[in-house]
């Protein structure tokens, strides 16, 4: 993936991450937490051009609960036409909880796969060790679930290469490069270029940036021929001091930027083709 892919006008896969596991309604009351409200917002995003939805489950109290992924998946399928469901296997829960993301019925077409640990507040999320990464990758491969490889920082790209060597990944490798605070990659254009230049052959990349970095760096990702993720999981503000009204607001802005850059959005079916899922 490179600038030439942009010049070739490769279609752009737009992912929406509506909810996540970090923020709650106390941070922004428009953040959807319950299955029906998540599905309603996903439907609006699908209509605006989102091809993939990244999904988390929450309890009625707004806390992370992977057991509710099934309900969220069911609600999305009921309301939406064809959007690709990508369940999370991340977060700070133990493996037995996280693996529920690839055990819904029917199975999700995609799932996230964290490439290593990272810091959160004053603790470290340690469950993303090589043992667990390989177990998840193996189950995804055996079930035909396409993993999105979560590269939270530069070092995690080494883990992608390691995983490729194990034979647990199928081409094209779909790599989500992540920029933000804490132990994420430092959000800067130079670092985006650096990571993109170091991607393995036969890979596609998605760009995720948190908070105020979402708008500029996802735009940069589009110019570099990559794909982008937006949504309230990563960003609660539309602009400085103005809380996001809904996920659709962020998706609409990203879709407009892609259009202005003359990059057509991929439909879910075209996304399946790009990712070798058909």
């Amino acid at each position: 993936m490179a600038y030439t892919d942009y010049l070739n006008r490769d279609k752009l896969m737009l992912t929406v991450a509506t909810t996540g596991g970090v923020h709650g309604k106390d941070a922004n009351p428009n953040l959807p937490e319950q299955p029906e409200e998540i599905a309603e917002q996903v439907r609006e995003c699908e209509k605006l051009g989102a091809a993939i939805v990244h999904v988390h489950g929450r309890s009625e109290t707004g806390e992370n609960n992977s057991a509710r992924l099934q309900e969220v998946n069911d609600a999305i399928r009921e309301r939406c036409d064809d959007i690709i469901i990508q369940n999370t296997t991340g977060g700070q829960a133990v493996l037995e909880e996280r693996i529920k993301g690839i055990r819904t019925d029917p199975l999700p077409e995609m799932a996230s796969l964290d490439m290593g640990p990272f810091n959160r507040d004053r603790h470290i999320i340690t469950e993303h060790n090589r043992h667990n990464i390989d177990l998840l990758a193996e189950e995804m491969q055996s079930k035909g679930i396409k993993p999105e490889l979560e590269v939270f920082n530069n070092g995690h790209l080494n883990e992608v290469y390691r995983l490729i060597e194990t034979g647990l990944l199928d081409e094209p490798y779909y790599i989500n490069i992540i920029f933000g605070g804490g132990t994420f990659s430092i959000p800067s254009p130079k670092n985006v270029l650096n990571l993109v230049q170091n991607l393995p052959d036969n890979s596609k990349f998605n760009l995720l940036a948190t908070g105020p970095h979402q708008l500029p760096l996802t735009t940069m990702g589009m110019i570099l021929g990559g794909h982008v993720r937006v949504g309230m999981e990563d960003n609660l503000y539309f602009r400085r001091g103005e809380p996001v009204k809904s996920n659709a607001q962020l998706v609409e802005r990203a879709a407009n930027i892609a259009s202005n850059l003359d990059r057509e959005l991929a439909t879910p079916d075209e996304a399946r083709e790009i990712l070798g899922m058909k």
């Binding site: 106390d26 806390e63 700070q92 829960a93």
Partner: peptide, 16 residues
């Protein structure tokens, strides 16, 4: 109110 991830610490979930 506390965030979902903070609530794991409050509830002593997992290894927290």
């Amino acid at each position: 109110f506390v965030s979902p991830m903070q609530a794991d610490l409050c509830n002593d979930r997992f290894d927290f």
